[in-house]
């Protein structure tokens, strides 16, 4: 079984090397999509041992994951994929645990959850935001999860083929859940550790992004599929 980790990255030159190196010890290959970063993310990732695909225009995290997925399936012939982050919030040691249900054939999709496990110092506002997200996801996708926007996932080749992401920005996480339900893929949740450092929190005001995500999902639901 060939396992490939996919890392979308945007301006992560200071963090990407560690992420790539950590991930490499648990998979057969790492694909980084440098999403038109203005820093040296691409070069640093390659030096750390990743195959780097570059988006010549920034298309967002969802688009980057889809690019990496197509490359891993078509060019690298991957059997199982792991979605991983560039910013060091995830723990690479947990990759084998995430892949296990795929490799054993127990599931097609493994979703990381911060709430089955011990999220390291998650801020209160994020906890509340997640409550809302859970309700929203249940209402929109009809899928009940403990954590709906966790970027740590493992997919079988079959699942990766069926989960084509068309929402380019952050709403891809919801779209993936939607498709898991629609395509009737077998999924399980696994507890994962996500660390919140000053640096990562400074990057993205979560409430701001939540609006963007909800907007993209509703747009897609009500307009794009006509």
């Amino acid at each position: 079984m060939k396992t490939i980790a996919l890392i979308p990255a945007y301006n992560e030159e200071s963090r990407i090397a560690a992420s790539v190196r950590d991930a490499r010890s648990f998979v057969d290959g790492v694909v980084v999509v440098d999403d038109c970063s203005v820093d040296r993310t691409g070069e640093v990732a390659r030096a750390a041992g990743a195959i780097v695909l570059r988006h010549v225009i920034n298309r967002g995290q969802g688009a980057a994951l889809q690019t990496a997925t197509e490359y891993a399936l078509d060019a690298l012939n991957a059997d199982a994929l792991v979605h991983f982050d560039a910013d060091g919030q995830m723990v690479a040691r947990e990759i084998p645990m995430m892949l296990e249900p795929i490799l054993s054939g127990e599931a097609d999709v493994v979703l990381g959850s911060r709430f089955l496990g011990r999220a390291t110092n998650m801020p209160f506002t994020r906890r509340m935001a997640n409550r809302l997200a859970r309700l929203f996801t249940l209402a929109i996708s009809g899928i009940a999860l403990t954590d709906t926007h966790n970027g740590f996932r493992a997919l079988s080749r079959k699942a990766a083929r069926e989960l084509t992401v068309t929402l380019d920005r952050m709403a891809h996480a919801s779209q993936i859940l939607d498709l898991v339900k629609v395509r009737r893929l077998r999924y399980v949740e696994r507890p994962v550790t996500i660390t919140y450092s000053e640096e990562t929190l400074a990057k993205s005001p979560s409430s701001f992004r939540a609006f963007g995500i909800v907007k993209d999902i509703l747009k897609d639901k009500f307009f794009t599929r006509i």
């Binding site: 999509v33 691409g42 390659r46 030096a47 041992g49 990743a50 195959i51 780097v52 695909l53 570059r54 988006h55 010549v56 225009i57 298309r59 688009a63 889809q66 690019t67 197509e70 490359y71 078509d74 060019a75």
Partner: peptide, 12 residues
Amino acid sequence: VRQIAVQHPSKP
């Protein structure tokens, strides 16, 4: 953008 990206991978 995706086409261009997958056609020009830079390998380690």
